[in-house]
């Protein structure tokens, strides 16, 4: 009795399984052998090609992590990640989320947890870069609001704004791996790793901005992101609220407001 032909869906499923795992048996039944290469070897060419592209892509997303663990380890670790987290959308820029969580679960990183925090920073940079640019509001319009409207006003961060907190000095680690001479950059071996870091990353026109802020600024921007009104921000931050707000607007960390 002849085996019924595979449906297109089955064929695609088996091909995907072959590309993202070592299970090449099922797809090999549907692939012709040619020349000296077996069906499994021919499918393997596709697997290597897909893995190669995704590994290079991950290396470009996580360049500091790549340097920290070494290219050879990074490639092997990426292979594991790619098999367990194949792309879920046809847009490559979506790929790579969860890499830091995958690191956190892996035994190899048990004693170097700070590296997966660096991965979170690198993913935040990627997300910020791929968000849209927005126009900045004319803040002089605040003067036209009534007192009640001013109190209920809510402020908006750029959509690209990523607000991070880490128990490790990941901003310094990131700086230490950049070729440019940024202010405050020190060699990796001189960095005191165990210290809280508050960082924001956002996109301004065609520039990606990454700035270390203090804990109060971090709390303020987090509160703004929660859509707290000016009255609520004043209640929470008391006297520093004026400086926090003006400084955030001046630096481009707040780009507009709305009132109800």
């Amino acid at each position: 009795m002849n085996t019924p032909p595979e449906s297109l869906k089955q064929l695609q499923t088996h091909f995907s399984e072959a590309v993202f795992s070592d299970q090449r048996g099922l797809i090999a039944e549907s692939v012709m052998q040619q020349g000296e290469l077996s069906a499994e070897q021919r499918v393997g060419i596709y697997r290597n090609s897909v893995h190669g592209i995704l590994w290079q892509y991950l290396a470009s997303l996580y360049p500091v992590c790549n340097q920290l663990v070494g290219e050879k380890f990074f490639e092997g670790f990426s292979d594991l990640f790619i098999d367990q987290h194949p792309p879920g959308t046809p847009f490559l820029a979506d790929y790579g989320d969860g890499f830091s969580a995958f690191m956190r679960e892996h035994d190899a990183f048990a004693k170097i947890r700070w590296i997966n925090q660096v991965a979170e920073l690198e993913w935040a940079r990627h997300q910020a870069w791929h968000d849209t640019n927005q126009l900045v509001t004319d803040f002089s319009l605040l003067a036209t609001l009534t007192e009640e409207q001013q109190l209920s006003a809510q402020f908006q961060l750029p959509d690209s704004m990523q607000i991070l907190h880490s128990p490790y000095a990941i901003h310094q680690v990131w700086l230490a791996h950049q070729p440019e001479d940024y202010a405050g950059k020190i060699p990796l071996e001189e960095i005191q790793l165990q210290q809280d870091d508050y960082i924001i990353v956002w996109r301004s026109e065609r520039q990606l901005q990454q700035v270390q802020i203090n804990e109060q600024q971090w709390q303020f921007l987090s509160a703004v992101r929660q859509n707290k009104s000016l009255a609520e921000l004043s209640e929470q931050f008391q006297e520093p609220v004026g400086v926090l707000l003006a400084s955030a607007i001046q630096h481009g960390w707040i780009i507009s407001f709305r009132n109800y």
Binding site: L135, V136, T137, D138, F139, S140, L142, A143, E147, Q150, L151, L230, A231, L233, S234, E235, Q238, E239, V241, G242, V243, L245, A246, I249, Q250
Partner: peptide, 26 residues
């Protein structure tokens, strides 16, 4: 209230920056 005073002072701080719409706004 104290919050109202702080909020008014905060708005004044922002207006003192003299920030109007960016020149590149279309």
């Amino acid at each position: 209230s104290n919050s109202k005073i702080l909020a008014t002072a905060a708005i004044t701080s922002v207006l003192a920056l003299g920030l109007t719409a960016a020149s590149g706004v279309m």
